[in-house]
Amino acid sequence: MNGEDTRVEGGCQGDPWADRLSEYVDGELPARERLAIEEHLAVCAACAAVAQELREVVARAGRMRLDSAPTRDLWPGVRVRLRKPLRLAPLSLPRAGDWRRAAPRLVAAAALVACCAAVAWVVAGRLRPAPAAPPVASAPGQAPSPAGAADRDYETTVAQLRRVVQARLTSDPHVAEVLEKNLAALDVAMADYRDALSKQPGDAHLRRRLIDARDRKLQLLRRAATLTTETGN
C-alpha cells in the first residue's frame, strides 16, 4: 500500500509525481501538493524537464493565433486532455490469467526453445543478436505552410510537439505509426481546404473547416505529447 497515493503506476516506476505534472503546469494542484511537487522538481531532472516542456507548449498554445478567428477557443479542449495523463510503453504485457491458463504449453515451448538454442549454440558457437527495434515512422510531407506570423507560430508549435512526441514514442512504434497516419490525413484535408480556398477565398465555411482541421491536429499532438509525458524515455 502506498498511503494516500492513488495514482496510476506504470512506465515511470517509482516516480509518484509524473502523472501530476500537467495539473501542476495548469495550476490546478492544491497548495500542499504544489509545494510537494516543486520540492520534487528541484531534485528530479527528468520531471523538471518534462514540466518545462509542458510550460513551453502551454505558453506557445496560449499565444497562438490562426489566420482568422477560430470558431472556438483551442485551449480548453487541450487543457481537458491534459488532466488525464496516461503512459505509453512497449506492448509486451503478459497477463497473469493468460499465464496460468497457458503455463503447460509455455513450459513446453520454453523447453523446445531451450533445446533449439542449445543445439544452435553448439553448432554455431554463438547466437545471432536480435534485430534492433524499428525506428519511429518519420513524419510524412508537411502540408504547405500558410503565410503569416500567426501561421508560422502554429507551424512552430506543431513542429515542437512533433519532436516531443516522436522522441517519446520510440518505445511504441505502433502508436507512433498510428499518430503519423492520422496527422497525414489531417494534412491532406488542410491542403485540400487551402487549395479550395485559393479558388473561393470568400468561402467562410471552407475557412472554418481549415481551422477545424488545424485545431484537430493540434489537439491530437497535444494529447499524444501528454500521453507520453510519463514514459520516462
Binding site: 500500500m1 492513488t6 495514482r7 503506476e9 506504470g10 512506465g11 516506476q13 510503453a89 504485457l93 497473469a96
Partner: peptide
Amino acid sequence: IDLRTIGRAIAVRAHARRGTPHGID
C-alpha cells in the same frame, strides 16, 4: 492491486513493484 475509498469514489489502481507493468484483466 489497490482498492480504496477516496472521498465519494471507489478507486481501483494497480502497479508493478518492479519492472515493466503487466496487463491485468
